[in-house]
Nucleic acid binder design. Structure first.
Lengths: 192, 192
DNA sequence: TTCCTTTCTTAAACTAGTTCAATGAACGGG
DNA sequence: CCCGTTCATTGAACTAGTTTAAGAAAGGAA
């Protein structure tokens, strides 16, 4: 049952069987139907979740009501608003399931217990946040320096399963173009 | 001499006089002339620096040779490639002074010593990286959801001193527009 | 000062992407 | 099974931003 998440974590640190036990005992299983909001703007994020199954979207709504998808999370990704979770301050983001989803979650309390009992987990979370930072930096650079068709190609490299799974306007809101223009891009690329 | 950096750090944690002493003893003062590269793509970043005086630019050069300015750092900002520094892996970024600059730097060694002797500094660095993440997220959202003139206005809010200090094409490469279009934006805004 | 170099501005022609509106495809509910 | 809804496609008219090229300002070195 916990094979995936254990595999994910042991890429960063080694765990004894006892430690694996302690870890998985602290996880809460959360099963959520599609189209459910796990976090809304203004709320304080109380979870860090590992996606066992399903698909999630993290997005921001700007002053004009325009949605910007910051990232997706599918199987084997972690999802949270890290800043809101750590500093226990209101989030600017929405987090929403796009499919029926199964998560393993840590709350501030269980995460603290985990770090007390197995301090080397600090490393796991530091690596997660650094990866997050690097990914975001790359995304920013690409957004600024590349045209939409190139960004689309990189997108499907990063999330190969997403185009089959979610509505096209979510992809548009990730790429920062109109849904119509995603159609145009696809037609052009198919033509080659 | 170290008043600024102490003030910066004590916004996150309290320090006794002894601890302040330990901290500042571990800092290396680095004086760098303008137009000097502190880090180039492919190198491993060996510093985290606090800007005591001067102005620095962090940028990325993409496949087509186009430069994208990721951020600036002026007085009271920290500067580093966090991912490269922590994981001791090659950087994708360039870091360059735009003015004669005075930095207080930590190396991997001195940072480790600092954390051993005053573990509560962990908190300072965790907050730095989280702020970095939040700032980057906001920047991405703005880049995607706003037009260039709005982005320009937010830019001068974030870095009020920069337009007077650096060439306009650096601002253009931060905003993701051509230098000519920055001219156009300025003319339009001045006209109001 | 003068000259040279670097940066900034302006305008005209162009390209990337948007908006609007209409049509078409896919899907779930009764 | 049909019907309503939601999403994707297409095209035409439009807007934001680029490119190129030329000239004007500004700054530094001799």
């Amino acid at each position: 049952m916990y094979a995936n998440i254990i595999h994910n974590v042991t890429k960063c640190i080694n765990l004894t069987n006892d430690e694996k036990q302690v870890f998985t005992n602290l996880l809460k299983v959360k099963t959520v139907p599609a189209k459910t909001k796990l976090l809304e703007e203004g709320e304080i994020c109380q979870f860090e979740g590992y996606v066992q199954k399903g698909c999630i979207r993290i997005y921001y709504v700007n002053e004009n009501g325009l949605e910007v998808t910051v990232s997706f999370a599918v199987e084997d990704w972690w999802v949270s608003d890290i800043a809101s979770f750590h500093e226990q301050k209101p989030s600017r983001l929405y987090i929403e399931t796009l499919e029926d989803t199964e998560l393993y979650v840590l709350t501030p309390t269980t995460k603290e217990k985990l770090l007390q009992q197995i301090p080397k987990f600090e490393r796991v979370f530091r690596i997660l946040i650094q990866r997050n930072l690097t990914a975001l930096q790359n995304r920013l650079i690409n957004t600024i320096s590349q045209k939409a068709p190139e960004r689309y190609l990189e997108f499907i490299q990063l999330y190969p399963s997403i185009p089959q799974r979610v509505a096209q306007y979510y992809i548009a809101s990730y790429l920062g173009v109109s849904p119509e223009f995603v159609s145009t891009i696809r037609k052009r690329l198919a033509g080659k």
